[in-house]
Design a protein around this nucleic acid. Structure first.
Lengths: 201, 201, 201, 201
DNA sequence: CATGAATGAGAGTTCATTCAT
DNA sequence: GATGAATGAACTCTCATTCAT
């Protein structure tokens, strides 16, 4: 019965089961037994593939981050002007896939947990830096140097904030409004600046 | 050691200890033993006053919500125009006391936990409704009817978002920038509207 | 507010509350808090009057035994012949007061507990000996010497057995049948013996 | 140490350890730690196999009842006449194996506990009904209809009563006398009835 | 005389982890 | 590769007991 090359399949199964369990029961009630059951596997296999529970949680957050990165990268590839690149980053972060309830619950729970877990904190820091860096790049070509950093912070905070809201409003969250709210801030930031060259009418 | 009339004092001590423990170790590692030790009391007394651990967590969230309410109410009392009332709500929610690291950690952890705990969910719902209702009141006098609800949502989301950001940036969070970010959105919303009567020059 | 001479009243209140609690919740769930509440008194007072919980349980068993003794003594006073004395003992042990549900539960729980508690065991032993001795006395005048001891044992066992049955049949227990069952054995024992002189027709 | 197919073995071990602990320390002082130690197993395994302590106690009573049933069934198989069937039931209930001190202590403790525990009460009720029904069957062929029910009750009560006595006399209990006491009642019941057809001379 | 605040040992239970199979 | 039996540490909660008032 043992098969070769099961590793990537099993790892993915277990990560999905973890996200699902966090979404359904919360991180506090996400036990290895529960994850195993959700994946249709035994508890022992988790330690075989991830060493311990923390390893699985870390891999889960890494997976969530990677999915987000893919969303942004795909959009950035199709962007040409700075304004389009800025939009690509915002749209990637607010992509519908990022707001699937289980994923949001997973993100949030692990995000909060990262405040007290070095391994998760490292992942979060890398992700935060990448978002900030991604935002600064187009903003540098649209705003005076002194305004770049605060603008990047504002947009990043807004995106994080909308996640929090989505996570806690249990589904009845309007992505359209979210998008417009971010755009309102962006427009305001760019309009105030003489360097702004909005590629959109 | 037993004394009379200790109940309010002990309850407060234990709530403070809970907030402190969540701030220091996270909710997952906040045990009744840890809370008791932080309060300089035994574990048994927690059950004496709060029934069980969940009762204490609920009382803790209730206490955090009450503090926030006080901040807002105090500022609302000094506000006269709708614009000032709107500012009072925003300023109350972004008051420095609300951004003390332990309190933010407590808020966030219990907020997230509320997704899977009915008692906490009830408290969160009441608080969310109050914030939204508080915001709608002055906005109704400054915006066309159709724009009131989206505006209230946007400002509420922004406030929640800035908390999340503060919670995870471990202290180096610029409250000034937060305030300005919210104001940028508010100004934008009001400027766009013909009904706006900003009492400030 | 302190009054003198409260001791016998308080002791009696607490013993009644103990019997009531054992009847309602069982010995395992009879806590000092529960007893105190049932008596309308605080937990501390129990230790004031009985030293500790075991002291109260011991006093409770002593009280139950004393009530039984009174029932028997009262009937023995009115008995004249050996056969009447034998009947008095049986009737006293099977008196309706002895089959009040709470009392039966108390008896049984403490009886069982006595197997592992020296203080209760002592009380039980004294009571068992008294019953056996009471029975032997009239039997000695009605049976040959060699048959006295086995007869006393049989009747004693039967009485104990009927208690057990009453304790577990939750009220729908026929005292009349119990009485007749014991009499059937007694009659048999006496009929078989040439020494029998039944004073009743 | 983990092995496959251990479930029935472990369950039996833990049930034996429970009976032994009740016999040695009483139900009140029978903790899962004590049971685990007596079985040479950890406390965790109890919850693995029985869910919780109550589950183990229920399984223990079920096991005691089953053993009794086996004793009776084995004897009934060898019985031919109604009188022999009646004897088989009595003898099965008074079999020496049923009077091993630990078993008697277990029976009694769980019997008493059943007054306040629905799961145990259910088991006790089933057992009581079976004994009563078993007794009625042969009695119907030996007594007039109206006497069957009282006779069944009397014999059942007597059997229960002798258990109680055995449980509390700490080993020095005369099984022979017990048997004769029951027989005395049975003989009396049958002799008094004109319908009696005792197949024995 | 009486209270009930406070303690802390010990109970049942959960759970990540290990490991023989 | 995969299982699940088994462990034991850590958790929440209960409770008899003490003691200042």
């Amino acid at each position: 019965m043992p098969k070769v090359g099961m590793e990537p399949i099993r790892r993915q199964q277990l990560i999905e089961a973890t996200i699902s369990s966090i979404g359904r029961h919360g991180l506090a009630d996400t036990t290895v037994a529960r994850i195993g059951a959700a994946a249709g596997l035994s508890t022992g296999i988790i330690h075989h593939y991830f060493g311990d529970k923390d390893g699985l949680l870390e891999a889960t957050l890494r997976s969530l981050i990677e999915r987000l990165r893919q969303e942004v990268v795909a959009r950035l590839r199709r962007a040409e002007t700075p304004r389009q690149r800025l939009d690509a980053i915002i749209a990637g972060n607010l992509a519908p896939e990022q707001f699937d309830p289980d994923s949001v619950a997973g993100w949030l729970a692990l995000w909060v947990q990262s405040a007290h877990d070095p391994a998760l904190a490292r992942l979060r820091r890398v992700n935060t830096r990448r978002l900030r860096s991604n935002l600064r790049h187009p903003l540098r070509r649209m705003l005076p140097a002194a305004e770049v950093e605060p603008a990047a912070l504002a947009v990043a905070a807004l995106i994080d904030g909308l996640w929090l809201h989505a996570a806690l409003s249990a589904g009845n969250f309007d992505l359209q409004t979210a998008h417009e709210t971010v755009n309102a801030v962006v427009e305001r930031l760019l309009l105030n600046s003489p360097a702004t060259k909005d590629p959109r009418p």
